[in-house]
């Protein structure tokens, strides 16, 4: 079971539409509490109204694995091979909007500006709600940040776990989400590609986030048959595609 907060953009500076008259009671009682990521505390289940609200008063929907399969396969049926790009774009838009929402939440919660906070810390603050809502645990490798790229490992991707071993990367929505969020965070265009996937028989999914030339190079090497490890090694050695 995975859940998705219904954060939406209305085109104004406020990128969320909060559920009307919904207030997370525990958050109201403990507004400064930061360890609230157990499912029991993060989500508020209102049996009488029949709805679920997250810590930030956003309506949340629980969906089944059948829903995920339906979404992926339905899109494939509608648009064919373009479904990967569509999923990536959905994730990218979501990530861009989430960067705006996250900035508001973070600055409110920790009483400090985003740009003055340690990157590793704010990234953990960003991903924890996703972990709680079933999108998987992550691990970020920032060692190559100065060279314009980084790696993200996702353990237990909801898409890959649901689809099973299909022999190709399937987590396009995650790749788009990372691209959109980091683009919004640093205000520079970034892309993302999934280098290895649980759905290819690997134990976890690995993503490369970086400037477009890095992503293009990785995509080229991947098409040539390079493994995630090969691509990672080439990037760490500073190699780009020979023109």
């Amino acid at each position: 079971m995975v859940s998705a907060a219904q954060a939406q953009s209305n085109g104004s500076t406020d990128a969320t539409i909060l559920a009307q008259n919904y207030r997370h009671r525990l958050h109201q009682i403990h507004p400064r509490r930061t360890n609230h990521y157990s499912l029991r505390d993060y989500l508020q289940f209102d049996n009488q109204r029949g709805d679920i609200t997250d810590w930030y008063n956003q309506r949340v929907t629980l969906v089944t694995e059948d829903f995920v399969i339906g979404l992926v396969e339905g899109l494939e049926e509608e648009v064919g091979s373009a479904s990967a790009l569509v999923m990536y774009r959905i994730g990218e838009e979501w990530g861009k909007r989430d960067a705006v929402v996250f900035k508001q939440h973070f600055e409110q919660e920790y009483h400090r500006e985003l740009r003055k906070s340690a990157l590793t810390f704010l990234l953990e603050a960003w991903w924890w709600p996703f972990t709680t809502q079933g999108w998987g645990n992550w691990e970020v490798d920032l060692t190559e940040q100065k060279n314009g790229f980084m790696f993200i490992n996702i353990f237990d991707s909801v898409v890959a776990r649901t689809l099973g071993d299909v022999g190709k990367p399937v987590c396009y929505i995650y790749a788009g989400l990372f691209a959109g969020f980091f683009t919004g965070l640093i205000q520079k265009p970034l892309g993302c590609i999934e280098l290895q996937c649980y759905a290819m028989g690997e134990t976890y999914c690995k993503f490369l986030v970086g400037k477009q030339d890095r992503i293009d190079a990785a995509a080229f090497w991947q098409n040539e048959g390079a493994t995630a490890r090969d691509i990672e090694k080439r990037l760490r050695q500073g190699e780009l595609v020979k023109q």
Partner: peptide
Amino acid sequence: DLLRDNFLLWYRTIVKSF
């Protein structure tokens, strides 16, 4: 269980991030 889910697992990531 609640100590682990609500605090320890989260705090471990904060420890690691610093």
